[in-house]
Each structure stands twice: as structure tokens, then as C-alpha cells.
Amino acid sequence: MLFTIVESFSPSDGDRWTSYCQWRGLAFTEFGSIDGILRPSLLSDLEGEDWNHIDHENFRVHLITDYDYAVQKHHQIGQGDLVGLKFSEHDESDPRFLGFDLIDGYYDVSLLTNWGNDVDSINRSLSPNALILSCQTVMEIQQELLRTSNTDPHVEGCQIVSIYCPRGN
């Protein structure tokens, strides 16, 4: 499992939350997506020891490889949400599992929460936490987007990510 620290986004954000839900045309109760526009990474100005705990693959420097270090960084940053994620070996039976997101090839924009506003299959499938709860469903949506929007740079290389609440890891 990898970890990231992202800006919080929830109903407590008032007008920002209300505007987003109105734009989406959906009523969410919480927000589990790791969309980098709505929930940007709070990992910045990496230095020294940080580089020993960062996922260097494909320049994913906003992902931490070690849970204990992620907790330490989260405390050091003092805000945001610590999120666990997997790009493979998804485990829907894990009690920490929150759902699936579909992230663009840049590891930044969620095709579910910040791109596919007009895609009916996405809107029908999003749960109240802004994630998809079934691996089969998110795979079908990914295939649909690759078939219908494969020239869009966000769709090209998109990846399924399972999202977890890392507490109790």
C-alpha cells in the first residue's frame, strides 16, 4: 500500500462543497476521491530523508511508501487527510477499504469526480463517498472511457486506484 496526504474536502467546506455538489448534480456525504484538483497533495518541498520514503516510479513523488513515515509526515504537516491507496492487488474485503477511484495517466485528476460530469455510467455508479464500491463496475467504466474518449490525454493511461483509510494498518 502507498500513502498520500491530501487537502481535506467535505461538507464542512461550505460554499466550495455546495458548489461542487451542484456542479456534479449529485449529493455526496463525504469525499474519498484523491482528485488532485479538489484535494491537492500537501507533500511539498521534499528534502533529505523524504526521498528515502517516496515512490519514485513514474515520478509519483506525492506518494509515500512507508506507513510510519506517512503518519510522521502527516503530523508534521498538521492538516489534511492521510489516505492509503493501491494501484493493484485491490482488496474490497479489507475493513479499511473505502472504494475505487479512476485517476488519469498523470496521477492527478479523477475521471470519476472531476472529469466525467456528463458520463451517465459514472454518475449512476458513484457512492455517497464519491468512490465506486465495485471493482467490476470501475473496470467497466474504465473500458467505456478508453473506448469512447481514448484521445483525451486524461483518459489515456488512466488507472484504477483502490482507496483505504490507513488507520489500524
Rank of each mutant, 00 (worst) to 15 (best):
T4H: 07
I5W: 06
F9Q: 00
F9C: 06
S10H: 13
S10M: 05
S12M: 10
D13Y: 06
G14D: 12
G14Y: 00
G14M: 03
D15R: 11
W17M: 12
C21A: 13
C21Y: 07
L26N: 05
A27M: 11
T29G: 15
I34F: 10
D35C: 15
I37W: 06
I37D: 12
L38P: 00
R39L: 07
R39W: 02
S41K: 05
L42R: 06
L43D: 08
E47N: 08
W51A: 09
H53T: 01
H53K: 10
D55A: 09
H56K: 14
H56R: 13
H62D: 15
I64S: 04
T65H: 02
D66N: 15
A70E: 08
A70K: 02
H74Y: 09
H75T: 13
Q76H: 13
Q76L: 15
I77G: 09
G80R: 03
F87W: 07
F87N: 01
S88V: 01
E92P: 14
S93C: 12
R96E: 03
L98S: 00
D104Y: 01
D104F: 03
Y107S: 15
V109I: 14
S110Y: 07
S110V: 09
L111C: 06
N114H: 09
W115S: 14
V119A: 06
V119L: 10
S121G: 00
R124E: 14
P128M: 08
N129V: 02
L131I: 07
I132N: 03
L133V: 03
L133P: 00
C135A: 13
C135T: 01
Q136G: 00
V138L: 05
V138K: 02
I141K: 08
I141M: 11
Q142F: 01
L146H: 05
L146C: 12
L146D: 12
N150F: 11
H154G: 03
E156K: 12
G157V: 01
I163M: 08
I163D: 10
I163P: 12
C165P: 00
P166T: 07
G168K: 03
